[in-house]
C-alpha cells in the first residue's frame, strides 16, 4: 500500500512495525536458548524462562491456514460474514486475522496464505494518525 499523507502512520496491531521511512513489517521474537517464537517482546522467555530476552526478527509474510470460522454475527457496524482465520506464518509466528478473497467452501486447513498490509479499515487514532493493519489472502493471490 502507499501512503499519500505526511502524517506518520501507526501500528494497528501489537506485531506491526512502522519504520521511519514508512516501511512496514511484522516483528517477532525468538529465544536464543530454546528457539521458541513469540509475538511480543517479553522480559524472559515465555517457553523456557531463560533470562536472555528473546531477540527481534523480521517475520516472513507467507504461511499456511491453521483454522478459521466464518463469522455471521458480530458487533454493531461490523460487516458480516467474514472469515476469522488463524494463520501460521513461516518462521513460527501465528496470528488471528481476517482472510479475504477465498470462497468459504474453498477454505482448506494447510492452504498457503499471505499477509497483506492494509489501512485497518481507514481507522485513525485520536490525533488523526492512520493505522496500519493487515489481513490475509490466498498464497497465490496478488
Amino acid at each position: 500500500m502507499t501512503s499519500t499523507t505526511n502524517i506518520a502512520r501507526k501500528a494497528g496491531n501489537k506485531s506491526v512495525r512502522v519504520g521511519e521511512d514508512g516501511s512496514v513489517w511484522i516483528e517477532g521474537y525468538r529465544c536464543g536458548a530454546c528457539g521458541a517464537v513469540m509475538p511480543v517482546q517479553t522480559i524472559a522467555c515465555r517457553s523456557c524462562a531463560g533470562r536472555v530476552a528473546p531477540e527481534a526478527y523480521r517475520s516472513p509474510e507467507t504461511g499456511t491456514l491453521y483454522t478459521w470460522s466464518v463469522v455471521h454475527r458480530s458487533y454493531p457496524g461490523v460487516a458480516v460474514p467474514f472469515v476469522s482465520a488463524i494463520v501460521d506464518l513461516d518462521g513460527g509466528l501465528s496470528f488471528k486475522g481476517t482472510l479475504k478473497g477465498v470462497p468459504f467452501e474453498a477454505l482448506q486447513a494447510g492452504m498457503p496464505v499471505r499477509l497483506v498490509f492494509d489501512d485497518a479499515g481507514g481507522a485513525v487514532d485520536g490525533d488523526g494518525h492512520p493505522y496500519v493493519g493487515f489481513h490475509f489472502v490466498a498464497g497465490d493471490a496478488s
Binding site: R73, S74, Y75, G121, Y131
Partner: peptide, 15 residues
C-alpha cells in the same frame, strides 16, 4: 489500536 473485530478476525467468544 483500532477495534479489532472484523479487521483482525473476530474477538468474540463464539468465533
Amino acid at each position: 489500536g483500532p477495534p479489532p473485530e472484523g479487521l483482525f478476525g473476530s474477538v468474540s467468544m463464539p468465533a
